Simulated assay, not measured.
Amino acid sequence: MDPTPTVSSALADAARVGPFFEIGTNPAEEADPTWRPFRDLVEDPEPLRARIAHVRTVLGGADAVEERVAASIALQGLAARLVSGPLAVAVLHGLVPAVTADALQWRVSMTGPWPLWLASPGPASTPLPDVLVDELLAPLIGAVRARVGVSAKVLWGNVASSVAGAKRVLAADRPVSAGAAARVAAEILDHPALAGAGDRLPAAPPDVGWSFRRRSCCLYYRVPGGGTCGDCVLTSPRAGAPRSARPRS
């Protein structure tokens, strides 16, 4: 660990974990006019509408996939991008980057997750759970629900699942930090907005510290050829062995 890390160097280190952990800080990106502040994503209806439509097309098209299913999957992808990098920075370097709605930038990509860039990387003055949930995730969920009739419980479950997934990936990539990853991820999940989204259970491999089971379903099983995830409420009942679930027509 760098004994005197900057937010920029910490984010660069986190990006090495994987593409969902990447938040760029290169000042040369300022010359690219396609970057937009996160605030635009929740205030301008068009980008989210277009992203949900794109995900719906990728999953099978409007005739095969409900709009609320596409909205759920789109939100989960965005949430994973938003939580992974800051979580890794907090775990690996003890820093909370100021990923505010004005400083954090995004741009459209049609071939994968939307890239993120932090125009002025610096430390936040509030705890990581509040930065992520209050500044980014709660407004994003509100914006999705203003456009598509999808359950808030589903969307918050997607966020919680993304936190647990980021913890697992980070622990696998940096085993020495697995305990810290479990602690920081648990702090995020303890935020009031996420407290009812799932349960932390005794760790089962490959998890360290705890395993996660959500109390909702992301609806991917309603996609043609889709299924359920390992932490889904449909396949992991609270009090016993896993059960199978048939997709509902």
Rank of each mutant, 00 (worst) to 15 (best):
I188L: 05
S161I: 13
V169D: 05
S162G: 14
A239S: 01
E187V: 07
S177G: 00
G209M: 03
V223H: 06
R238V: 14
S177D: 00
R215Q: 07
V169W: 14
S216I: 10
L194C: 06
A166C: 02
A182F: 03
P175V: 05
S236A: 11
V223F: 03
P237C: 11
A166G: 01
G196A: 09
G196K: 08
L194N: 12
S211A: 04
G209I: 04
V159M: 13
L234H: 07
A204R: 01
A181R: 04
P175E: 09
E187W: 14
C232K: 12
S211Y: 00
A193F: 14
A203G: 07
A166E: 00
H191L: 15
V159T: 15
A164C: 11
R214H: 07
V169C: 05
V233A: 14
P206I: 07
R214P: 04
N158W: 07
S211W: 00
A239C: 00
A185F: 14
A178C: 02
R222S: 13
Y221L: 09
A172W: 07
A193C: 14
L189P: 06
E187P: 13
V163W: 10
D173I: 09
P237Q: 10
A172I: 14
L219F: 15
P202I: 12
D207I: 05
R213P: 11
L234I: 04
A182Q: 06
P192M: 05
G226D: 06
T228Y: 13
D231R: 01
C218I: 13
S161P: 09
G198Y: 03
G227N: 15
A185W: 08
V184M: 03
C217L: 10
R222T: 10
R200L: 11
L219I: 14
N158F: 02
A160W: 10
D231C: 03
E187H: 15
C217D: 00
R222A: 14
R214D: 02
D190S: 15
A164P: 11
R213N: 07
A195I: 12
R238N: 12
L201V: 09
C217W: 08
Y221F: 12
P192R: 09
A166M: 02
G227P: 14
G179T: 00
G227T: 15
S161Q: 07
R214G: 05
G179F: 02
L189V: 09
A204I: 01
R215F: 06
V176A: 07
V159Y: 14
S236Y: 01
A186R: 08
P206H: 13
A172T: 11
Y220V: 03
G230S: 15
L170N: 04
C232A: 04
A197G: 01
G196D: 08
K167A: 05
A185V: 14
R174P: 05
S216R: 12
R238P: 11
A185I: 13
A197H: 05
R213G: 02
A204Q: 06
H191C: 13
Y221M: 08
R213Y: 03
S211T: 08
V176D: 13
G240A: 01
V159E: 15
A180R: 04
G198N: 10
I188V: 06
V163M: 11
C232W: 08
P237E: 08
L201E: 10
R174F: 02
T235K: 09
Y220C: 01
P237D: 08
C229Y: 11
G165V: 06
A160S: 10
V169Y: 04
P237W: 15
V163N: 06
V184Q: 09
D173Y: 12
G209R: 01
